[in-house]
Simulated assay, not measured.
Amino acid sequence: MPTYAYRCRECTGTFELNRPMSESGAPATCPDGHDDTVKLLTTVPLTGSASAPMPAGGGCCGGACGCG
């Protein structure tokens, strides 16, 4: 289940909620009981290893256009 971040406009606190994607636009109440909240845009961390080898291929499109 995705985690969504919110900010309360009344107390300026931030909090997170786990909820289904179908409820992503539903109103959220802050932990202090305030209803004036806004959903924040969050970034998605990329997973992987910095030491992982890069895939073979060439150019901008993996060599399919002949540029590699």
Rank of each mutant, 00 (worst) to 15 (best):
G13T: 10
L17E: 11
A52S: 15
A56T: 11
P53F: 04
P45M: 03
Y4F: 15
H34Y: 00
G33E: 09
Y4N: 08
G66F: 01
C61N: 09
L17R: 12
Y6W: 15
R7I: 14
F15D: 06
P31R: 01
L17Q: 08
T12N: 12
G68I: 09
G63I: 04
M21P: 02
D36R: 12
G13P: 00
G48D: 02
D32I: 03
G57D: 11
Y6N: 06
G59M: 03
E23Y: 08
C60V: 10
R9Y: 06
T42E: 14
P53A: 14
G25H: 14
T3E: 08
T29R: 15
F15G: 08
L41Q: 12
A28R: 05
M54F: 09
P31K: 04
A26K: 13
C11L: 02
S49R: 14
S22K: 07
G48S: 02
E16I: 11
T14N: 14
A56R: 12
G59W: 01
P20W: 03
N18P: 02
Y6S: 04
C30M: 07
R9Q: 13
C11S: 01
S22N: 07
M21T: 10
F15L: 12
C8S: 09
Y4T: 06
F15W: 10
S24C: 00
M1N: 13
E10A: 13
R9L: 15
E23N: 11
L40F: 05
G25P: 04
C30T: 07
N18V: 10
T29E: 15
P31S: 04
G58L: 00
R9A: 06
H34F: 00
N18T: 06
P45I: 02
L41D: 14
E16W: 09
A64C: 07
R19W: 10
A52R: 15
D32K: 15
D35R: 13
A28S: 12
T3C: 00
H34G: 00
L17W: 02
G25W: 11
C11T: 00
P27C: 02
P53K: 12
G58V: 00
A52H: 11
C67N: 08
C67R: 04
K39A: 04
G59Q: 02
T3G: 00
P55E: 10
R7G: 06
G68Y: 10
H34K: 00
L46H: 07
A28H: 05
P45Y: 03
T43A: 12
T43I: 12
A50D: 09
H34R: 01
V38N: 09
R19D: 10
C11K: 02
E23M: 12
P53I: 05
C30W: 06
A50R: 08
A56M: 09
G58F: 01
A28V: 07
Y4G: 09
C61D: 09
A26M: 05
G13H: 11
T42L: 11
P45H: 03
A64H: 06
G58N: 02
M1T: 15
E23C: 06
A26V: 04
C11A: 02
C11P: 01
C61W: 05
G33S: 10
S22D: 11
C67W: 01
C60T: 08
G57L: 11
C8R: 05
T29D: 14
E10I: 11
R7Y: 10
P27V: 01
C61I: 10
